[in-house]
Simulated assay, not measured.
Amino acid sequence: MARYTGPKSKISRRFGEPIMGPSKALNKKNYPPGVHGRGRRSKKSEYALQLMEKQKVKYIYGILERQFRNLFHRAAIKDGITGENMLKYCEARLDNTVYRLGIAPTRRAARQLVSHKHILVDGEVVNIPSYSLRPGQVISVREKSKSLEAVTESLVSHSSKRYTWLEWQGPDMVGKFVTYPERDQIPENINEQLIVELYSK
């Protein structure tokens, strides 16, 4: 199954941001990983910046190259701004929505919950993390999975984080993907225009 399984703190240090969750290594070593991490030149070419931005989005949402290329193509042929469409499709992924609803503490954990058939979409089990949700679809935790310690602990710790494009009914563990989010509602630090420029070459 397509996913990144390497060290998370290295990725965070490479980009200088906790893109794969909070990392103590980022506080201790605020320079890129590797033997030349400290002495690496800071000025990067235009292409390097564009490529890094694409890699950052892929790591944040857990998407590999072919999936990402297909997703970008969908965004490019849809009406509207290509970069914003791309981020909307990333946010509409089932694993990302499970994470945003607070059912899982990280996107990796959300991916595992989906893969292990703990999540329902419109009452049916869906075990494909990349499943693209449509506005109005209902996401819920399977009845026999509601007592899972990982789920209950995550819901308690994420109770204060809510997003305007999602609805959540805590007691029933049922959420709704109301609409695609607007760009200013997505909190991730992403310059999507660099990715559009990369693919337009």
Rank of each mutant, 00 (worst) to 15 (best):
E197K: 10
A92I: 12
G136M: 13
F15P: 03
R69W: 02
S9L: 01
Q185E: 15
E149D: 13
Y31G: 09
A48C: 01
Y99K: 10
E53A: 01
E182D: 08
N189H: 12
E192Y: 09
G39D: 14
L49V: 07
I195N: 05
T164P: 00
L133D: 07
F15A: 03
K201V: 11
G123V: 10
K44I: 04
A75Y: 04
A76C: 10
L71K: 07
K10I: 14
I11R: 10
S132R: 08
A25V: 11
R111E: 05
H116W: 05
L51S: 06
E188R: 04
A48N: 04
I128Q: 05
K144T: 11
N191Q: 12
E46V: 12
G170C: 00
L148N: 14
H158R: 15
I77V: 14
G83S: 03
T97S: 13
S23D: 15
G34M: 02
K176Q: 11
N127E: 07
E65K: 06
N30M: 03
M20R: 06
V196W: 02
M173I: 03
E53M: 02
R3G: 11
D184T: 04
G102F: 13
I186W: 01
F15C: 03
Q193H: 08
P129R: 03
N189V: 12
H158T: 12
P105Y: 01
W165N: 08
P32E: 06
L51K: 01
Y31H: 13
I19F: 06
L133Q: 09
G39E: 13
G136C: 10
Y163G: 08
Q50I: 06
I128G: 00
K176C: 14
R41G: 10
E91F: 07
Y131F: 14
V196Y: 00
H118W: 00
P171H: 11
E124D: 02
S159R: 14
T82Y: 03
L148W: 13
Q67P: 05
K10S: 08
T5L: 10
A76P: 05
E53S: 01
Q55R: 08
M86L: 15
R142D: 03
S200C: 11
L113D: 07
S157R: 12
T106G: 02
L71C: 10
Q67R: 08
R162Q: 15
R162N: 15
V141S: 10
K10C: 09
M52Q: 13
I81W: 04
F72A: 07
R183C: 00
S115M: 04
P187Y: 04
C90Q: 14
C90T: 05
E91D: 02
E192H: 07
Y99E: 10
R74V: 01
S160D: 12
